[in-house]
Design a protein around this nucleic acid. Structure first.
Length: 584
RNA sequence: GCCAACGUAGCUCAGUCGGUAGAGCAGCGCAUUCGUAAUGCGCAGGUCGUCGGUUCGACCCCGACCGUUGGCUCCA
């Protein structure tokens, strides 16, 4: 996957951030600056000032920026000694900048950038002069902790965007509008897929019939593919005793994400934030031989995690969700082929759902880690070899792994170019130790198995949200909650319409009949709004000929067809799954 | 949790200066039986997020709480 912004654009955006900061300094008193980088789709600048910035300030700031652009100040790069920089910042009361200065490593050249009266400690680069900015627009203001640390003071961050030309900016605004139309929260309500009820609680999902139907289809497919790939499926409880979570270590380092315990008889129980301890119990239920390995346990396990109120977001970030979890327990000899299988599996799964563009991130051993170095090395090598063997482009994040093992995260790109991380393949050197997991090797002695957590879809809730956005609510035929709507032109064709619906239902299609006394145009509009893939219009002509006039939601009128031909066409499209949807 | 904005009918939104609310769509009823994205007429629908305060009087002003949105942090 390639970056979507060019270095020129980034430079221009960063320069725009300086201009915005300069404008804010002109308009308000006592502005202390932090930093103003370019981002993937714009830029921001963090300030601390007594005035509370709000959208009502934007027109003035934008106007001042336009003035600075018109003044066309050159961006002047000045190298400066550290002491001198410090003195200058102290004079100006730029406390955040002084801290930033202290973080610059010894020996690195310190530079300032001047544009008119505005001076900022900055590495650059910048455009030649403030007159060289493209089109820009302020977007929102948000709070942001200095350095992103909660105990630090909160700064005011102004988000903005900039493009080389006004046309590009307009295009970006259109793209934002497009994303808004695809928003799964909006479509979830409009298409009656799911809801979140204030009376029940935030972050808790209610699947309505249509959403539940899609989920069911996703899960059926998921189960079928897992059996085919040699997994065993498990169901495990939703709660477990405190002792279990002590052994697993969750109460030690994960407690703030777990819900308060409940007292049952004399014991404390916790609702599960993860499925792993239960799977391990099943593994531990009897002695395991090397001949039993690999063990592949999979579960659509619903877990509950406390998420801070401010981070909840539709289906993408919730408090109760269903992981498509699996644990692979295997010998050292098996790990490479097992990882490779998982990657293949993930890719096939994504393809079925219409996602082709995949990239990977390999995260290696952090400073603080458990487990022997040799195991880390072997596991990391296995992950890398599998990525190379499967020809998946990847970036390495050195030291980015969890303390308990290295991992690969797989990201997919959706229909409008956004990247989503869902699959994760994660070694765990911690739990096998804590639970003292073993298998008996060929030599009769106990050995410690390797354990891998993996999720393909991530969470069913989140995956469903992404699926809705990817397809803009127009599910491919195999997933559509309603696949065909039969529409009699008048009441006279109602019995014939029913017979067509029955014939399709007998072939397992999801069909309804629109028997409302509306005109055909209104029925079609309704079905289009509901994003139903096929409409079967039946009037007097069709009834006479024993046909239906098939209409597709994007291709339009397909003309009269024999019911058998319709069935053959739909069966073929269902069989092609994601491949079919890509053509739409 | 923190910063900011927001919360009016099922949905989208209007509501002037403080004098207890209105539209479109959806719903329901009646009429219409129609050829590929909206047939007409009528009816009904609200503790203005919740609680408290100010006021003769609060959708409107103030406070607290709940929720939503955009961020910060973290992640599936």
């Amino acid at each position: 996957m390639k970056k979507q912004t060019s270095p020129e654009l980034e430079t221009m955006r960063h320069s725009a951030a300086h201009v915005m900061a300069a404008a804010v300094c002109r308009l308000f008193e006592n502005v202390r600056l932090d930093i103003g980088p370019a981002t993937e789709d714009g830029f921001y600048y963090d300030f601390d000032l007594p005035h509370r910035l709000g959208p009502e300030d934007f027109p003035a700031i934008e106007a001042e920026m336009a003035k600075i652009v018109a003044e066309d100040h050159p961006f002047e790069r000045v190298e400066i000694a550290r002491d001198e920089a410090r003195r200058m910042l102290e004079e100006r009361g730029q406390t955040y900048k002084i801290e930033r200065l202290a973080e610059i490593p010894e020996g690195e050249t310190i530079t300032l950038f001047k544009s008119g009266e505005f001076v900022d400690l900055c590495r650059g680069p910048h455009v030649a002069a403030t007159g060289r900015l493209g089109a820009f627009k302020l977007l929102t203001v948000a709070g942001s902790y200095f350095h992103g640390i909660e105990t630090n003071p909160m700064l005011q961050r102004v988000y903005a965007t900039a493009q080389m030309t006004q046309a590009d900016l307009d295009a970006q605004v259109r793209q934002l509008e497009e994303a808004k139309l695809r928003d799964h929260r909006r479509l979830g309500r409009e298409l009656d897929l799911f809801s979140i009820e204030e009376s029940v609680g935030p972050g808790l999902i209610h699947w309505h019939p249509k959403g539940a139907r899609v989920r069911c289809l996703v899960e059926d497919f998921w189960r079928q593919e897992h059996f085919r790939a040699g997994y065993e499926l498990l169901y495990t409880p939703h709660i477990g005793r405190a002792g279990l979570w002590e052994t697993s270590g969750h109460l030690g380092f994960y407690r703030e994400s777990m819900y308060a315990p409940m007292q049952i008889d004399e014991n404390e129980y916790f609702i599960k934030p993860m499925n792993c301890p239960f799977h391990i119990q099943i593994y531990q239920g009897r002695r395991r031989s090397y001949r039993d390995l690999p063990v592949r346990y999979a579960e659509l396990g619903t877990v509950y995690r406390y998420e801070k109120a401010g981070v909840l977001h539709g289906l993408l970030r919730v408090r109760g969700f269903t992981q498509d979890d699996a644990h692979i327990i295997c010998t050292p000899e098996q790990i490479e082929s097992e990882i490779r299988e998982v990657i293949r599996f993930a890719r096939a799964m994504w393809r079925a759902f219409g996602f082709e563009d995949i990239a990977a991130y390999l995260a290696t051993r952090p400073e603080k880690a458990v487990g022997e170095e040799a195991r880390w090395a072997q596991a990391t090598a296995a992950l890398e070899a599998a990525l190379q063997g499967e020809g998946i482009p990847y970036e390495t994040d050195p030291g980015g792994g969890a303390f308990y093992g290295p991992k690969i995260d797989l990201k997919v790109r959706d229909a409008i170019g956004r990247e989503w991380q869902m699959s994760t393949i994660q070694f765990d050197f911690n739990l096998p130790e804590r639970f003292d997991m073993t298998y008996t090797a060929a030599d009769g002695t106990p050995h410690r198995p390797y354990m891998v957590h993996r999720a393909l879809l991530g969470s069913i809730e989140r995956f469903f949200g992404i699926l809705v956005e990817h397809h803009a609510g127009a599910f491919p035929l195999w997933l559509a909650p309603e696949q065909v709507r039969v529409m009699p032109l008048t009441d006279k064709q109602l019995p014939y319409a029913q017979s067509i619906a029955t014939a399709l239902r007998q072939r397992d299609f999801r069909v309804t009949v629109d028997s409302a006394p509306d005109k055909i145009g209104a029925k079609i509009r309704q079905a289009q709004v509901e994003k139903i893939p096929y409409m079967a219009v039946v009037g007097g002509r069709e009834e006479q000929a024993g046909k239906v006039a098939l209409r597709h939601r994007t291709s339009g009128d397909l003309g009269p067809m024999d019911p058998d031909a319709v069935i053959a066409r739909l069966q073929d499209e269902v069989a092609r799954k994601g491949a079919a949807s890509a053509q739409e």
